[in-house]
Structure formats: structure tokens, C-alpha cells
Design a protein around this nucleic acid. Structure first.
Lengths: 231, 231
DNA sequence: TTTTGACCAATTATACTATTTTGGTCAAAT
DNA sequence: ATTTGACCAAAATAGTATAATTGGTCAAAA
């Protein structure tokens, strides 16, 4: 995924197991995905999984961290690739596209019981998803920098972003994709509405891209560190 | 409800039964609400219910029609009471407030399985909720009247309204009310975002209020007619 | 005529057992 | 040193017989 030159055979085992778990979990949900199946799908023995993680619960924890890390790498790439990503609307568009592209994180965000199963009752999804949300603090910072309208509180703007994200991620359970407008034009339209509805022209534009990338790098760093000292 | 002078005793029986059903259903959901309980709550015998409707299914159908009618009356009152309701944003605000105020219609809109239970598998909720949505046609009409921005298709704008409605109606299952901004300021903020993000200044403003009230009256008329020739 | 609530068939919940599957282990194979 | 997969206790599931509840009816009461 990160590097296509690395063959499946050479790909390190924990990653292969996580990719297998990801595939099965998005299809059958956490509850109905067994350790045996994951091992078979990954082409390793069941014991191999328990050499990496102490139990199923920890495997799923690692899976979410893994997906979250992939998402941030994906988001980083999208932002870097887009020269126009120095606007909050563009940034938000990248966020939506990144989350939507990961079925597991989407399920976590919308609390999709069909995918999460009992997992949602043992683990608090907020623990993971709040890292995805625009934080009240960063919204306030952008507001101070003159990038967001200031007649609405930072708190309420943050809430609006959450509402739109949730609506966007779960609308297809109510309006099936075949009755919906094309995916891309929907995302563009949300960005356009945010652009003229929430942001202010001018302001310190480069700040947005810069600070966002910085935040992503910081989070990725934390994941790397955590990933290495908990195995 | 419509007229506080009508005492509970004098209120016609079918209405009392429906009010009882409404109370129990919003609390326990369709599945776990029994005809016996409804009768007891309404202060009538079980047989009385079967004198009005041929079965439980039809009672629930009537309940939804009832709630929908109440909602439209509520919406009509809100729009009439608000002298500034000649803007799409204000109109949308009234819509959100009206729907939110009815737990049953909200559940229908968000396909809340906890409330709808098996009902959702027998009846198509869209049958009811699509009447609530801004239709593609009316959005197109408002766009033609110069009231909505025209760089986005009518289809996608309609979709945006659906996304925001769904997000607004279901956000509290993810962000509990105690962590959310005050209800009113949220609705105000959505309206503000719609105002500057989707609408155009000028245009034939009075058209909005007028045509909306006309549409509501038409729908109410249909309900009245249906209500009278099916008992 | 209008309304009731005891009554019934049918569905659904419960308690229990038998069977299978699952997460997790570890002696043996590589 | 690694990795495996047969193995086990525990948990989930399927099956079943029984009890309780539910939607719906209708003779009798109001």
C-alpha cells in the first residue's frame, strides 16, 4: 500500500494480518470475523496472530490505529497534491474524501452497529473518531486568523462540520447511491457551501495548509511511536 | 393540541388513541408497543381500537399520518409567525425545528431502528419522509426565481439539504446534547450557513413564503380528505 | 347503537439441552 | 528461533419443549 514494490510475500506479517482483518471486517463486521478466518485470509497460522497481539481485542485496536494511520497518510497526500488546498473548504473536502474512502473509519464515525457489533459496546468509538474531527481549538485558531466567519462561535462552527460529516457519511443508508448525485459533485458542492457559507475571504491562507500538514505529521509521529513500543 | 379548549374527555376518541400510541411509541418503539397498552394509555378498551382501524398496522399508518399532519400545522404556524420567513434559510430552519420537535418523524427520517423496529421492514419509510424533503422540483423552481445559487445543480442542492437534515437529526447519537452547543444557536448557525452558502440575495422573496404556505395547505387538505374517506 | 373485556388462536418469549464454533495455548515440526 | 495446527475450555448457536404474551374477535353489557 505504502510502497507497491514490496510484494505481498515480503510485506511484514503484522501488516498482512491487519490488511486481512480489514478486508474481512468491512465485509462481515467485527462480531462475525473470527481469528481463524483472519489467519487463513492472511496466509498465516492462528498462532502467528497471537505472537503479535495478546488477543482479538488488541488486534482490533491495532487495526483501527492502522486504518487511522493509513487515512492520515492518504489525507496528507491529497493535501500535498492539491495546490489549491490552502482554503478551509478544500481541506474539509479532503477530510471527507479520506474518511469516506475508509469503510472502517466511516463505520466508526457513524457508529454503524452492523460493522462495529459488540466492539462499540466495549470500546468507546469517540476515543478514535474525535481525532478526526476539526477540534474546537483549531477552528478557533482559524477564526482568529480571519479565515472563518466570526459571527458564529468556534464551538458552533465545529458542530456544523460534525453535522455535515455525519450527514455525508450516512446519507446513503437513506438515499441509495443510485438515486444520489455523482459522488464528486456532492463533495464539491459541500466544499462550495462551506467556502461561501463559513469562511472569510483573505486572511492568512498559507497558514491553513501548513498547520494542517504539521498536525498530521505530529499525529503520524505519535502513531509510529505508539506502534513500536507496544508490540 | 390544535385547540386547548377541547378537554381530554371531549377530544374525539381516535385522536386520543393516536396520542396515546404516539407517547408509547416514541418511548418504547413500534415493536414493543402493544395494542393493549395503547388502549390502557388512551383510557379505552382494546375493542374500541379495532372499531376504528382494522389492525395494528393500519393504526400505525394512521399514527404517522397524524404526526405528519401535526408537523405541517406546526410548520405552518412557525412560518406565519415569523415575518422574516421569506428567505429559504429561514424556511429551512423552520423545517428542521418542526421535524426535530416530532420524535416519531425524526425517527422515520433517520431510519432509527430502535424506534421503527420491524415496521421499517414492512413499510417503506421513504413513502412518508419524501414528502418532508425539499423536492428537486421546488428547489429548481426557487433556483429559476433567482433565490438559490445557480452554479450548483438543483439535484445536488436538494441532496445537500438532505445531508444537513440527516446530520442535524442524528448528530446527538454521536455527540450527546450535553457536549453540544445550545440547540437554538445550532439551528441559527445552519440557517446562516445556508443563507450565505446556498442562497442568492434579491430574487422574488415573497414567492418563497407564499408558495410554501400554499404547498402546506394543499398537503393538509389531502390529509383531511384521506382521513375522512378511509375510516 | 355503541362499547366493552373475557376469550382464542397464533405468535413470541423463556428455559433447557445438545451441538458447534471460538478465542486462546503449547508441544511438536520446521 | 520461528511457526504451526491439533487441542481445550468457554462461549455462542441451534434445537426444542413449554409458558407467556399478543393481535384480533364477538357475545354480552351499557
Amino acid at each position: 500500500m505504502t510502497n507497491p514494490n514490496v510484494s505481498k510475500k515480503r510485506m511484514e506479517r503484522p501488516t498482512r494480518i491487519l490488511e486481512a482483518a480489514s478486508r474481512l471486517t468491512t465485509r462481515y463486521g467485527f462480531d462475525k470475523t473470527t481469528v481463524d478466518e483472519i489467519a487463513r485470509e492472511a496466509g498465516v497460522s492462528k498462532g502467528a496472530i497471537y505472537l503479535v497481539w495478546p488477543g482479538k481485542e488488541e488486534l482490533f485496536d491495532a487495526l483501527i490505529e492502522f486504518e487511522m494511520k493509513k487515512l492520515m497518510i492518504d489525507m496528507r497526500a491529497r493535501i500535498l497534491a492539491d495546490e489549491k488546498s490552502d482554503s478551509i473548504a478544500a481541506l474539509y473536502r479532503h477530510t471527507l474524501l479520506s474518511i469516506k474512502q475508509s469503510p472502517l473509519i466511516s463505520a466508526l464515525y457513524t457508529r454503524d452497529g452492523k460493522i462495529l457489533g459488540d466492539f462499540v459496546r466495549r470500546q468507546d468509538p469517540e476515543r478514535y473518531t474525535k481525532r478526526l474531527l476539526m477540534s474546537k481549538e483549531s477552528v478557533a485558531a482559524m477564526q482568529s486568523a480571519g479565515l472563518l466567519r466570526d459571527d458564529l462561535s468556534a464551538e458552533v462552527i465545529t458542530y456544523l462540520f460534525s453535522i455535515m460529516s455525519l450527514g455525508f457519511l450516512s446519507i446513503n443508508s437513506i438515499i441509495p447511491v443510485e438515486n444520489a448525485p455523482p459522488f464528486d459533485s456532492t463533495v464539491e458542492a459541500i466544499a462550495a457551501m462551506v467556502e461561501s457559507g463559513l469562511t472569510r475571504p483573505g486572511g492568512n491562507r498559507p497558514l491553513i495548509k501548513e498547520s494542517t500538514l504539521q498536525m498530521l505529521d505530529l499525529m503520524l509521529e505519535q502513531y509510529e511511536k505508539r506502534g513500536s513500543d507496544e508490540g
